[in-house]
Design a protein around this nucleic acid. Structure first.
Lengths: 174, 174
DNA sequence: TGATACGTTTAGAAAGTTCTAAACGTTAGA
DNA sequence: TCTAACGTTTAGAACTTTCTAAACGTATCA
């Protein structure tokens, strides 16, 4: 506890907890990730449970969530039947995964909903013209256009081979 | 209720509720926004309270949050002492505001935390060399670099005059 | 003035979420 | 086969968030 590296690890756990919480994951996911990220060796459920002072069940659930999002991976340690985990250190890979699995889906869903409403409005306008329906059509079109652009933006980010190089290359004039 | 435009409005309220909830705002903020976005006239607290079937106090709190984020604006209606609200329809403006007020701050904070931890690690390493500290330094540097890049990316998006035109201009070859 | 029509604040109810401890099922080795 | 060491699931406790109804303060108009 008075070990300076221990203090640093705790600092990162706190910071990562903040970050995951902000991005809509559980705080404990971040704390676990922070712990693993600064551990030279992979850790077991029990070790993590102890480090964070939370129940083993809680670690189990959160470590599986981290695994689901490819933020940590299980590694096999010869001669031990416990499961060991280590942090995925390729952040771009993690970001791309989250964009693909979560953000992209959300945009697609939004696009779908608004598209349906727009078609419904146009249908309504055909049978019974009204200023109200015309107004709705105009606004929904604008919204659809916006979501489409955001959707494309996410799509581009998702497929870039190296976000860093590519994105910052592009912001400079040739 | 059987009015088709009414149905469309309800559809958008639902969709916008989903969206704001996903992005870490309250669901009701989205529903209010959806309602206002498809209303040809600005609406009062009581009208919104009625449309969403929620208490006036709840509308009051959520409409002020929307105002804070520049998603709606209050308009003055001559001869009426009630407050009227209408939707801000410039989505790029809203996105930029949120990036500036919320996302940017979060990145800066993360950068700050990690920077501090990194400096502390280097300090530790000076007085008492250890493989553990060296490992921490290496990993923290990598993390700092990543956050810095994301931070810059947000900064670029934030200041672009027209995100749509600029970003998609850049993804095409010349 | 007083009465009324507002938006805001608040105390506590309701709903939702996250956590733990214990029960559980499975595997491995004696 | 029995026992012990695992990770997972679960029931309910603890905590957090969100909502309402009512009280409140202020401005308006008679």
């Amino acid at each position: 506890m008075n070990n300076p590296v221990e203090e640093i690890r705790e600092g990162l756990m706190e910071a990562m907890g903040r970050i995951t919480s902000f991005w809509g994951f559980s705080r404990i996911m971040g704390q676990l990730y922070g712990l693993l990220y600064l551990s030279p060796n992979p850790l077991t459920l029990d070790e993590m449970s102890e480090s964070l002072a939370i129940s083993k069940g809680n670690v189990s659930i959160n470590i599986r969530a981290l695994e689901r999002w490819s933020m940590v991976k299980a590694v096999w340690v010869k001669g031990d039947r416990k499961d060991y985990y280590e942090a995925e250190t390729d952040f771009w890979k993690i970001v791309k995964g989250v964009l693909r699995e979560r953000e992209k889906k959300e945009f697609d869903l939004a696009l779908d909903s608004v598209g349906k409403l727009l078609r419904k409005s146009v249908e309504t306008q055909k049978t019974a013209k009204s200023a109200e329906a015309a107004f709705a059509i105009e606004r929904l079109k604008k919204l659809e256009d916006f979501i489409q652009t955001m959707d494309k933006l996410v799509g581009v980010l998702m497929t870039l081979e190296d976000i860093k190089r590519n994105l910052f290359g592009l912001t400079k004039k040739k």
